[in-house]
Design a protein around this nucleic acid. Sequence first.
DNA 1: TCATGTATTTAGAATAAGTCTAAAGTAAGA
DNA 2: TCTTACTTTAGACTTATTCTAAATACATGA
Lengths: 142, 142
Amino acid sequence: MTAHNHTEQIPSAEQLLLSRGVKPTPQRVVIAEYLLQTESHPTADEVLSAVAQALPVALSRATVYNTLNTLKEAGVIKEVLTEPGRVRYDANITHHHHFVDVKTGKIVDIPSDKVEAIGKLLGDQYKVHGFQVLFYGEVESG
Amino acid sequence: MTAHNHTEQIPSAEQLLLSRGVKPTPQRVVIAEYLLQTESHPTADEVLSAVAQALPVALSRATVYNTLNTLKEAGVIKEVLTEPGRVRYDANITHHHHFVDVKTGKIVDIPSDKVEAIGKLLGDQYKVHGFQVLFYGEVESG
DNA sequence: TCATGTATTTAGAATAAGTCTAAAGTAAGA
DNA sequence: TCTTACTTTAGACTTATTCTAAATACATGA
């Protein structure tokens, strides 16, 4: 599967993988391309069904999980935990937040600067039921 | 198992369940008591092993899950998602946030007012590697 | 007290997400 | 071409959770 640069603003998945030290195999490239182009925060299963038809050969479940873990470790994608029991993936690795629409289940990205003043309104477009800040870091013991 | 009010500041689990319309069976009371008294944000499995010895009879896994779901639906506890594949529970239902110590895996509560100015330091006690705001609500379609 | 109905608990089967394993495939270099 | 190292694969396995159907407990009315 050769690259056919259909859209200009999306960086080549191949380049991205190379720049992160990940060998751009066809499977990895197609999975990365899918994640870069979607805004749907898919699960591994959703990646599998979306990408399976784009590849000439069948794609195994194990490869999807292997690739997602490889891309995650290489910093190409991030995990998003919104619901119990499922992990979603996001190729937007800029510092941003997520807004879960409880009606539709859709997850949309919220740029970091939008929430600078937490507790204040996000804008008319969003009706916030609640939010949670999840910190990762270290506590000084003592 | 009769109540023996060993600590004053913790509200009686029995009262709490009754006030939320949950029938206070021995299993539910012991599970609620455990969650109210701990700060460890335990998983279902951790609840089971911690509580099993406190009950005169054996406690089944299904009852732990049933009870946790009942308590969650009644608003007595909340789910906390910090790692893929596991759900943790928190009986602190005030609006607060969580800080995951990546060294120890411990999750500590951060009161809401601490993070009013997101992006600024949480205080010397915490070394923040990153944080994520998780919103729940609705997007205006359009 | 006894029967009855309703809710709860239980053990274990079933499901779902993800990982592991061992074999087969692929590609590059000697 | 042969070797070596890595990747992909199918399917077995694990783990967390839910489901199911039977057993138990408990309250109420006769």
